[in-house]
């Protein structure tokens, strides 16, 4: 479903991705964990081309993009937009459109990008708001919603484009602890429905629970292994030290698992 091969990305002199490769099968969920600044978010932003990789190859579904090959023309605005339309993305800070109601936020993709008639776009949007449990908030502006509600609207907005994969970038990091559950619940539901997802998260317990594969990322490269093995018996010393610090920080983590 998603195949990333030897992806490189630098911001100025700072090399963020150093040859990342990753395969995500159709219907599977990959969680990416790792310390801040290890390149997790950059990787996610590269997958739907919000960042322009320097080198490497990205395939999502049957669309494929190559970078750093001087024989190929750089993809144009139209091509990039079409590629992004097929991959849904949810952000840490929601990034809802503040001048639109919840309903119009979700309708934005179907009506502006897919140019569906208003009635049809609205039906899709209302259906998705109901799916994330916010049917009654259709007319509310983002400023009148809680963080958890905003993030659920943002998930509905991404789903409205009927994406073949969903990318979630630390979607609970900006939430108050008591609101984390409602958002994770929606993500979990998507996973059960067979949505292909890549999730960058600090919720190690959640990654363990929902992901078929946990990839540990450190210093621009990926170390991957199945979740139970990675989380309970990490082999890579960097993974081990990261999780050790995390366990000490959370304290109760090992107890609840």
């Amino acid at each position: 479903m998603i195949e990333i091969a030897d992806l490189w990305k630098a911001f100025g002199p700072h090399q963020v991705l150093k040859g990342v490769s990753l395969r995500v099968e159709r219907g599977s969920v990959v969680a990416i964990i790792g310390p801040s600044g290890s390149g997790k978010s950059t990787l996610l932003r590269c997958i739907n081309l919000l960042e322009d990789p320097d080198r490497g190859c990205i395939r999502v579904g049957d669309r494929e993009m190559h970078f750093g090959d001087s024989n190929r023309a750089t993809p144009g605005d139209r091509e990039l937009a079409a590629f992004r339309a097929a991959t849904g993305m949810v952000f840490q800070h929601f990034n809802l459109f503040p001048h639109m109601t919840a309903l119009h936020n979700v309708m934005a993709g179907p009506s502006i990008v897919r140019r569906l008639p208003g009635r049809e776009a609205e039906d899709i949007a209302r259906g998705l708001l109901a799916k994330v449990g916010l049917a009654d908030k259709a007319a509310a502006y983002p400023s009148h919603l809680s963080g958890g509600q905003r993030q659920r609207v943002a998930i509905a907005r991404a789903l409205a484009m009927n994406p073949s994969v969903m990318l979630c970038d630390e979607v609970t990091s900006a939430l108050d602890p008591e609101l984390v559950g409602e958002v994770l619940g929606v993500i979990e539901q998507l996973a059960e429905e067979g949505m292909t997802m890549v999730i960058v998260t600090h919720e190690v317990a959640f990654a363990h629970e929902v992901a078929d594969l946990v990839a540990f990322m450190s210093d621009g490269v990926i170390v991957e292994s199945p979740p139970s093995q990675l989380l309970e018996h990490p082999e890579n010393p960097r993974t081990r030290s990261f999780l050790a610090r995390f366990h000490r920080f959370v304290g109760s983590f090992s107890g609840t698992q």
């Binding site: 919000l50 459109f97 990008v113 409205a160």
Partner: peptide, 9 residues
């Protein structure tokens, strides 16, 4: 980011 992510040009 959000607008481009849903495929807007």
């Amino acid at each position: 980011d959000a607008a481009r992510a849903i495929g807007m040009r």
